[in-house]
Design a protein around this nucleic acid. Structure first.
Length: 639
RNA sequence: GCCCGCCUAGCUCAACUGGCAGAGCACUUCACUUGUAAUGAAGAGGUUCUCGGUUCGAAUCCGAGGGCGGGCUCCA
C-alpha cells in the first residue's frame, strides 16, 4: 500500500502498516521523535493503521498540537498516581487546557488533597514517566466497558459511558492503559509516558461534576507539562511576570485604590486612582458628545414597584440590595435601564426625536456572591458607562453600528482588541420568531458592516433580545466582559414606552442597552494590567515629577511644577532632603512618565533636565519648550 | 454560594515541637546639601482578622464567623 507524505512523495509500505511503521520507514530519527500521526488533520495514535492512498504526516514535538498531546498524557499519569496514593479515588475527566491540563477526582471520604501533597504526587508521577510505560489502546463494546468500570466502582466513568450510549448511540468505546491505570478515553496518546519531559502540578481547586452546582464537588488538580525543563521554567517565569502585572498588586503599590473589609467588593479610590478614573470618564463623556448622547442623572434608590415593573423583582432580586423606608420596600439600582425607561415614559416623544440616547455614568450595586469577587474585575459597587437608546426598529442597525464604532474607537486608543461574541435567541424567550429574526439580522448586519470578526454564541442571548458582547483578557489570560450591546423588546413593553409616528398613532420603540468600557472599575483593572502599571501620559496620575538637587533649588522646582500646572499638566515637586538617586528611584518605582532634575545650571538657564521613565536621561532643555511639548503629548490620545 | 488554601506593624515576610512578637522597606526626628534607580543615625509603630474553647501558658491546637487568594457555579 502507498501513503502520501507532506512533501508530496509517496511511501510504499506493507499492508497493515501503522504510523509508527511509516515513521520508521522514513528514518530512525523520525521514528524516535514521533509522538502521533495525523490523518485528515486529526491526531491519531502512532499505532493506528494506515489506509491505502492517504496523505499522512508524523507529529513530533515541533507540532503545535504536540504539547496538548503530552499534557493529556500527563493527566492520565496524574490519575495513575492519585489512584495509587489514595485508593478508592474515583476518576472523572482530565483534559488538556490552555497552558496545561487538569484532572478532576472524587477522593474517598476523609481524604483531602491540597498543594501540600503535590510533592508526593509529583514524585509518583515521575516514577511512571521514568518507567516509560506504553499507552495501549483497546476498543471494546460499550457494555463490556460498563461492566468493567462498574466492578471497579468508577461511577463517573459508568455515567460517561451510559451517556455516550444513550445520547450518541455509541457502541464501542476506546480504553487506554498506561502502567496500572486503565481509563476511558477518546485519545490519542503519545506512545509512552516517557515523552513527558517536564511536569509540574500547579494548583488545586473545587469543581462541580459536569459543571453543575447540584452535582458533587470534585477536587480539580491543575498541572502542566513541557518537552523540556527549560520550557517549563520559562513558563513559570512568565506566570511570575504576569503576577507582577496583577492590577490588585499594582493598585496597592501605585496607591491607586484599596479594598477594605468594611465594604467587601467596593474599591476605595485614592487620589491618584481617582485621577485615572476621572480621565477615563472624561474620555467617555467626549465620546458621548461626539456620538450624540445626552447625559442624564437618575436616582440610586427606587420603590420596589419600579423593580416589579421592570421584572428585576422577580428575576434579579437576589442580586439586589434592598431596604425599607417608611414601610416601603426600596431597592438600590443594579442597573440603569429601569430608571432610564421610566424617564423616557414620563414624557411624550415624536418619531422626529428618535433615537433618544440617554447616557449615565451610573453607580450600581449588585450583591454578587462572595466567592465571585475579584479585585476591580468583579465588584459589588461600580460605575458603568451606560446608555440606553430608544429607537424605531428600522433604526436599530445604524444605532448598533454606531455603538460598535464608538467601542472600537475607544479600544483603539489603548491599543487593545476585544473578542466579540454574538449571542442569539435562548430557549426561554419572549417575542415572536419574526421579531427575533429581525433583531438577530440587525446585529449580524452591524457586525458585518463594521467588518469585525466575531464568534457566534448560539442560544446565549438574553430572554428579551439578542446581544453583542465584547471581552478582554487580563494578565493571567482570564477573559472579562467589558462592553455589551443588547437589543431589548421587553422593557419598552413593560414600561409601555411609546412614540408618536408620522401616522399620528402610537408606536413602541426598541431599547438598546449599551456599555463599552462596561464598568470603569473593571476597565481600569484591565488597563493597569495591559500597561503593567505604566499608564500613558494622558492617564498618568502624576505626569511629571520635579526633582531639586539641593535645598537651594527647591523654589525653582516649585516654579517649574507651577508652570506645568498652568499648562494643564499634573506635576509635583519632590522637596524631600534625599539624594537625587533616591528621588529618581522612587519616581521610577511610581512609574511617573517624566522626571525633571533641576540644579544650578537648570536654574540659571531656565531649563529642566528631562528623564523619561524607562528610557533614562534625555538631557536638558528650556522649560518653556518642554512645557509646550509635554502639553501637546498629553493632549488626549488619538483623534 | 460551593471546594481548597491563607490572614502577624502601612507593605513584604520571620518567630524549632504551644513558652517574653521580630526584621527589611515605608513613617517621624536629627545630621548630611546631594547631578540620574536606595546617605547615615535614632525613634515611633501590634486586639498576631474577630468571637468562643482547650491549656499553667495560644500568633501557634480546636470550633464558629469575617475577609482575601486559586478554581467551580453564577454573571440582562
Amino acid at each position: 500500500m502507498k501513503v502520501q507524505l507532506p512533501s508530496g512523495d509517496w511511501l510504499e509500505l506493507p499492508d497493515g502498516a501503522t504510523y509508527a511503521d511509516a515513521a520508521e520507514a522514513i528514518g530512525p530519527g523520525l521514528a524516535r521523535a514521533a509522538l502521533a500521526g495525523r490523518r485528515n488533520g486529526e491526531l491519531v495514535d502512532l499505532s493506528a493503521a494506515l489506509e491505502d492512498g492517504q496523505p499522512i504526516s508524523i507529529v513530533t514535538a515541533k507540532d503545535p498540537e504536540a504539547l496538548a498531546l503530552i499534557r493529556h498524557d500527563a493527566a492520565h499519569v496524574l490519575a495513575t498516581a492519585a489512584l495509587e496514593l489514595y485508593p478508592g479515588t474515583q476518576v472523572t475527566i482530565g483534559p488538556p487546557i490552555e497552558d496545561g491540563f487538569y484532572y478532576d477526582f472524587d477522593f474517598p471520604d476523609g481524604v483531602k488533597v491540597t498543594d501540600g501533597d503535590f510533592e508526593r504526587l509529583e514524585q509518583q508521577v515521575r516514577e511512571h514517566i521514568r518507567a516509560q510505560e506504553r499507552f495501549e489502546r483497546t476498543d471494546v463494546p460499550a457494555g463490556e466497558a460498563l461492566e468493567r468500570f462498574r466492578e471497579q466502582g468508577q461511577d463517573y466513568k459508568v455515567e460517561l459511558i451510559e451517556d455516550l450510549v444513550s445520547d450518541r448511540g455509541v457502541e464501542t468505546v476506546s480504553l487506554y492503559r498506561n502502567g496500572p491505570f486503565l481509563d476511558l478515553c477518546r485519545g490519542p496518546h503519545a506512545p509512552d509516558t516517557g515523552r513527558i519531559k517536564a511536569f509540574k502540578l500547579l494548583s488545586v481547586a473545587g469543581a462541580y461534576w459536569r459543571g453543575d452546582e447540584r452535582r458533587p464537588m470534585l477536587t480539580r488538580i491543575y498541572g502542566t507539562a513541557f518537552f523540556s525543563k527549560g520550557d517549563l521554567d520559562e513558563h513559570l517565569e512568565r506566570l511570575e511576570q504576569a503576577r507582577a502585572r496583577d492590577h490588585r498588586r499594582l493598585g496597592r503599590e501605585l496607591e491607586l485604590f484599596r479594598f477594605s473589609e468594611v465594604s467587601p467588593g467596593a474599591a476605595f479610590w485614592l487620589p491618584r486612582g481617582t485621577v485615572v478614573f476621572n480621565r477615563l470618564l472624561e474620555l467617555t463623556r467626549d465620546k458621548w458628545r461626539e456620538y450624540g448622547y445626552e447625559e442624564v442623572k437618575t436616582p440610586q434608590l427606587y420603590d420596589a414597584e419600579l423593580w416589579r415593573t421592570s421584572g428585576h423583582w422577580d428575576k434579579y432580586r437576589e442580586h439586589m440590595f434592598v431596604t425599607e423606608a417608611e414601610d416601603r420596600s426600596m431597592g438600590l439600582k443594579p442597573m440603569n435601564c429601569p430608571g432610564h425607561a421610566h424617564l423616557y415614559a414620563s414624557g411624550r416623544h415624536s418619531y422626529r426625536d428618535l433615537p433618544v440616547r440617554y447616557a449615565e455614568p451610573g453607580l450600581l450595586h449588585r450583591n454578587e456572591p462572595s466567592g465571585t469577587l475579584h479585585g476591580l474585575m468583579r465588584v459589588r459597587h461600580f460605575c458603568q458607562d451606560d446608555a440606553h437608546i430608544f429607537c424605531s426598529e428600522d433604526q436599530i442597525e445604524d444605532e448598533v453600528i454606531a455603538c460598535l464604532d464608538m467601542g472600537l474607537d475607544i479600544y483603539e486608543i489603548f491599543g487593545m482588541e476585544a473578542r466579540i461574541e454574538l449571542s442569539t435567541r435562548p430557549e426561554q424567550r419572549i417575542g415572536t420568531d419574526a421579531m427575533w429574526d429581525r433583531a438577530e439580522a440587525a446585529l449580524r448586519g452591524a457586525l458585518e458592516h463594521r467588518g469585525v470578526s466575531y464568534e457566534l454564541n448560539v442560544g446565549d442571548g438574553a430572554f428579551y433580545g439578542p446581544k453583542i458582547d465584547l471581552h478582554m483578557v487580563d494578565s493571567l489570560g482570564r477573559s472579562w466582559q467589558v462592553g455589551t450591546v443588547q437589543l431589548d423588546y421587553s422593557m419598552p413593553e413593560r414600561f409601555e414606552l411609546e412614540y408618536t409616528g408620522a401616522d399620528n398613532s402610537e408606536h413602541r420603540p426598541v431599547m438598546i442597552h449599551r456599555a463599552l468600557l462596561g464598568s470603569l472599575e473593571r476597565f481600569i483593572g484591565i488597563l493597569i494590567e495591559h500597561y503593567a502599571g505604566e499608564l500613558p501620559l494622558w492617564l498618568a496620575p502624576v505626569q511629571a515629577l520635579v526633582l531639586p538637587i539641593a535645598d537651594r533649588h527647591e523654589s525653582y522646582a516649585e516654579r517649574v511644577a507651577e508652570r506645568l500646572a498652568e499648562a494643564g499638566l499634573r506635576a509635583e515637586a519632590d522637596g524631600r532632603t534625599e539624594s537625587v538617586g533616591r528621588k529618581i528611584r522612587d519616581g521610577e518605582l511610581r512609574k511617573v512618565p517624566y522626571m525633571l532634575v533641576v540644579g544650578d545650571s537648570e536654574q540659571q538657564g531656565g531649563e529642566v533636565a528631562v528623564r523619561r521613565h524607562g528610557e533614562g536621561n534625555l538631557g536638558s532643555r528650556p522649560l518653556e519648550d518642554f512645557a509646550r511639548a509635554l502639553a501637546d503629548e498629553a493632549r488626549p490620545r488619538k483623534r
